[in-house]
């Protein structure tokens, strides 16, 4: 009898670099031990991988590196649960398991010649960074670019170096807001969603990509809609508990959608039909 191979089997990957981003966030640069696998690995920003810390479990982590970076990939991990805390204890040379990429990413192909607003909050910046990198690498294909990012305090600002770099670029408008500013903070303060009313941006031919806490995204979607955005112009990435990543285990089920296979990126018109509250 033919044996079918498990789609849940992790591939071994080595941590080649660890960077401490904020007190709770670390970026791990990982590379598959199997060179062929590393060569074949490609993804669309917004997709995620299932990362295993052997003996502790497996968790979904979105890829934060550029899709054009072929020799390795980066995972930005927030130390909040058992597995992610354990991952934070790992250093260079440790071996973890990876499988993926899973899900549906941001449909960047559709945005040619259009303006893009990247909108993220907290560690939502992780998957957004990948999208920004992808767009920025072929900047001439797109219109005006905007980045809105919010975080709790200046020391929790993720990828500050990248953001500083993007700020200097032409045709790229970057707005960072901090909920609780420290005295030395010179940028915006208050919720990032408040920026939507303050900043001038085009509505026609503009798409919004969103990733962050659900509460932030709900408010942001509402505000963008008030400014005249159609639901089809908004794409938001949802976060749910996931155990398998292949639409079997049932944890990420919302109505008829499984976030792991139909998402995590949903368009505004799909989100309207979903029972996001208690669904």
């Amino acid at each position: 009898m033919h044996q079918f191979e498990s789609p849940l089997k992790p591939e071994l990957a080595e941590i080649i670099r660890v960077k401490e981003e904020t007190p709770f966030l670390k970026t791990f640069t990982v590379r598959f031990l199997d060179k062929k696998k590393q060569k074949q690995f490609s993804f669309i920003p917004g997709k995620f991988v299932m990362a295993s810390v052997f003996g502790f479990g497996e968790m979904p982590i979105s890829i934060s590196s550029s899709p054009y970076q072929k020799d390795s990939l980066q995972l930005t991990v927030n130390a909040v649960g058992n597995i992610s805390r354990q991952m934070h204890l790992l250093g260079k040379g440790s071996v973890v398991g990876l499988r993926g990429p899973f899900g549906r990413g941001y449909p960047i192909q559709k945005f040619r010649k259009k303006n893009i607003i990247f909108f993220s909050g907290g560690c939502g910046m992780a998957s957004m960074r990948s999208a920004v990198y992808a767009v920025n690498a072929k900047k001439e294909l797109f219109g005006k670019l905007f980045l809105f990012h919010g975080c709790k305090s200046p020391q929790e600002l993720l990828f500050a170096e990248d953001i500083a770099k993007w700020e200097k670029e032409q045709n790229f408008n970057v707005f960072v807001s901090v909920d609780k500013p420290t005295p030395d903070w010179k940028g915006n303060s208050g919720f990032v969603t408040d920026l939507i009313d303050k900043v001038d941006f085009p509505v026609e031919n503009t798409f919004v990509l969103m990733c962050g806490p659900q509460a932030m995204m709900n408010i942001a979607i509402e505000k963008f809609r008030k400014h005249g955005f159609k639901p089809e112009q908004i794409f938001a990435s949802l976060e749910r508990l996931m155990h398998c990543g292949i639409g079997k285990c049932g944890h990420c089920n919302i109505g008829k959608e499984y976030v792991c296979v139909h998402g995590p990126v949903f368009s505004g018109s799909e989100l309207e039909k979903m029972h996001l509250r208690e669904g």
């Binding site: 849940l8 003996g55 479990g57 497996e58 079997k248 285990c249 049932g250």
Partner: peptide, 26 residues
């Protein structure tokens, strides 16, 4: 009803571990 959870357990006294699949419930 098919929902399941996946969890890892160490084999006591070793550095080996096992990954189990168990029933879970909504």
């Amino acid at each position: 009803c098919y929902c399941f959870a996946i969890e890892d357990f160490f084999i006591p006294g070793t550095e080996d571990s096992e990954r189990y699949r168990e029933w879970d419930s909504c």
